[in-house]
Design a binder for these strands. Structure first.
Length: 586
RNA sequence: GCCCUCAUCGUCCAGCGGCCCAGGACGCCGGCCUUUCAAGCCGGAAACACGGGUUCGAAUCCCGUUGGGGGCACCA
């Protein structure tokens, strides 16, 4: 981060004025020039439809309104005539450039903290941001919210990048690739956050606090007993002199935001509509810790302002923190971004998705043979619908139709069964060569050794048949195991069920006799020989072929038999039939 | 405890006051096809949480109840 930017934004403070709702407003004029006149950016409202998409709120100058009109259709906010009655009239058909103002580029960000593997919920949040940016021709920023130096690891950082790349999402600015705003790592911007916090103190929007943990705890207990919200109201705030004394004594106090009370923060959430928070329930939270490091609220908000983020699309878990972010944004004099809070993902029991429900990390699905496009598609329609009844949605269609206003408000259950169905669909849609190419290395990996040329050829031969039968890439190895060199293992249940029949011995001996003299070892020849054998002995295909299948593949479930035998080769086929015959007898 | 939020089949989504005794998808059940298993095709069971309003008319609007989810740190 360019340190000078901080200086430019942090001109001397002016006396705070008395607007109780927005005490920090004075800082508008201190912390940098106001970008666009209010109202200008608000032109994006020529939209109607399901939900409002506010490209920008005018901030303090005009109350949110559109959503209300929508929610109360009778309330006078009727749609303009001449609009097609299409129910799916998307709200953000309107381009990112509001009519009257200058060009406004949509800028969104995904800002994970590298404290764990990127999980599916994070992936979905990233995807919705990405789709929104691509839909509007905007900018997708990848930021690293790595202020928690204790818990961050390079491994997790790398995993986030890997997972995003795996899904095929690219970013226009951010970590790894840089951009006009510096390193995009919060850990590199502590000076900037501190400067903002100090400027806010100077402007009266924040203060140094002297409350001890014990005092805080006592307040919390008292509030709970009184049936009130456990919010700290700044009663132990320090005077400038006291704060200076603490600093001098080597015991610097933390900086808290001065939440104006009474007061309220109201905003229009793009997916949820109008939301109001009474400041009696908003804490004077710590922005800057006593060690000078920023908390999430400060760092994230400062970055959103500094990076010119226009739409903050994130998980619903941060919805209750939004008034804090708005208060800081206002104090900085930045235009408020539009907020969109996505509902969270749950496990099958309706509880927050966790390891307890199975895999949560994207990486785990990748390792378990899920195709990136399947995961992407699945995540996309988990909480959003492209508008028709299609479930398989090409990427281009997603981008074309993606609409934040049409995103579901319901928490969604992450349904692995549906993911697998979708994965099977994408697996089958692959070109056979591509499938084989993707699959063979995986088989080698499972085996822990390279395939011999013979095995390679045999597996490649049946790959298209396996392709139709796989739900995941990892389903392949078990299905082609019988083609590997070495002894065959019989699956016990299959053997017991099939080989106990009276037809088993007949079929095996008949097959050996029919196959041994074959002139050419082809699928067609094998089929002809075996069907002839069935007819000769009066066996149905079901009865007569299953023993051969078990003898040769070890299981009652396998790729189609004739092709399997062809791939296996005559010698090994006959060996296995002979071995099985002996085994029955013995 | 306090605050926010959500509420249509088991699950995801459609539904934006009459087109809905509610539509699609996954899953489930049955059938067809068939050399097993898949795939595919056909068919079936399966939901507007509850109670009040508003309205000629409500799954759709309002209020309440109940239930679910989230948040309430010098974590993010």
């Amino acid at each position: 981060m360019d340190p000078r930017q901080g200086v430019r934004h942090l001109l001397p403070a002016r006396p705070r004025h008395r607007d109780r709702d927005r005490p920090a407003r004075a800082a508008h004029h201190l912390l940098g020039e106001r970008r666009t006149p209010p109202g200008r950016l608000d032109r994006g409202h020529g939209v109607r439809g399901r939900r409002d998409l506010r490209l920008h709120h005018p901030g303090d100058d005009a109350p949110p309104r559109r959503r209300g009109a929508h929610r109360h259709p009778g309330g006078g906010g009727s749609d303009p005539p001449g609009r097609p009655g299409r129910s799916r009239d998307r709200t953000d058909r309107e381009p990112a450039q509001p009519g009257g103002g200058g060009v406004m580029t949509v800028r969104v960000r995904f800002a994970p903290s590298p404290t764990g593997y990127l999980h599916v919920g994070g992936g979905r949040t990233a995807l919705y941001n990405w789709l929104f940016a691509r839909h509007h021709g905007g900018v997708f920023v990848l930021r690293s919210d790595d202020t928690d130096t204790e818990r961050n690891t390079p491994e997790f950082q790398a995993d986030i990048l890997d997972s995003l790349n795996w899904l095929g999402m690219d970013w226009d600015e951010g970590i790894e690739i840089g951009g006009p705003h510096g390193s995009y790592r919060q850990s590199h911007r502590f000076d900037r956050y501190r400067a903002v916090a100090e400027a806010m103190v100077a402007a009266g929007a924040a203060y140094y606090d002297g409350a001890t943990p014990e005092q805080l705890e006592a307040l919390r207990v008292a509030a709970e007993a009184a049936g009130e919200s456990p919010v700290y109201d700044g009663r132990h705030r320090l005077s400038a002199a006291e704060a200076a004394a603490r600093v001098a004594a080597g015991d610097p106090p933390p900086v808290r935001l001065a939440v104006p009370r009474p007061g309220e923060t109201r905003f229009v959430d793009v997916v949820r509509g109008e939301i109001t928070f009474n400041h009696d329930n908003v804490d004077d939270f710590v922005m800057l810790r006593s060690d000078g490091s920023p908390t999430y609220h400060l760092a994230s908000t400062v970055d959103d302002v500094d990076y010119g983020i226009t739409h903050v699309i994130r998980g619903e878990d941060i919805l209750p923190s939004t008034p804090k972010h708005i208060l800081i944004t206002d104090a900085m004099g930045g235009p408020r971004p539009a907020y969109a809070h996505l509902s969270l993902l749950n496990g099958p029991d309706g509880k927050k998705l966790s390891k307890r429900h199975g895999d949560t990390a994207l990486r785990a699905y990748r390792d378990a043979g899920i195709l990136p496009m399947a995961m992407l598609n699945f995540l996309a329609i988990l909480g959003w619908s492209p508008g028709d009844d299609e479930e398989i949605v090409p990427l281009a269609t997603m981008i074309e139709r993606f609409d934040l206003g049409a995103v579901s408000r319901n928490p969604a259950v992450f349904d692995v069964a549906k993911l697998e169905w979708m994965n099977g669909h994408y697996l089958r849609a692959m070109a056979p060569e591509v499938f084989a190419e993707a699959t063979l290395p995986l088989v080698e990996h499972d085996l822990g050794r390279p395939l011999t040329p013979g095995e390679h050829a045999a597996i490649a031969a049946v790959a298209p048949l396996v392709q139709e039968r796989a739900k995941r890439l990892t389903d392949v190895t078990p299905q082609v195991r019988f083609l590997l060199e070495g002894d065959l293992e019989y699956e016990a249940a299959s053997w017991d069920k099939v080989m106990a029949t009276a037809e088993a011995r007949v079929a095996l001996e008949g097959a050996a006799a029919a196959l041994a003299p074959l002139a050419s070892w082809t699928v067609a020849a094998i089929e002809e020989a075996l069907r002839g054998m069935l007819a000769a002995y009066g066996l149905t295909a079901g009865k007569g072929l299953q023993p051969i299948r078990v003898a040769v593949t070890g299981s009652a479930v396998s790729p189609p038999l004739f092709e399997s035998l062809a791939a296996l080769g005559r010698a090994r086929t006959l060996d296995r039939i002979a071995a099985a015959t002996v085994r029955i007898g013995g």
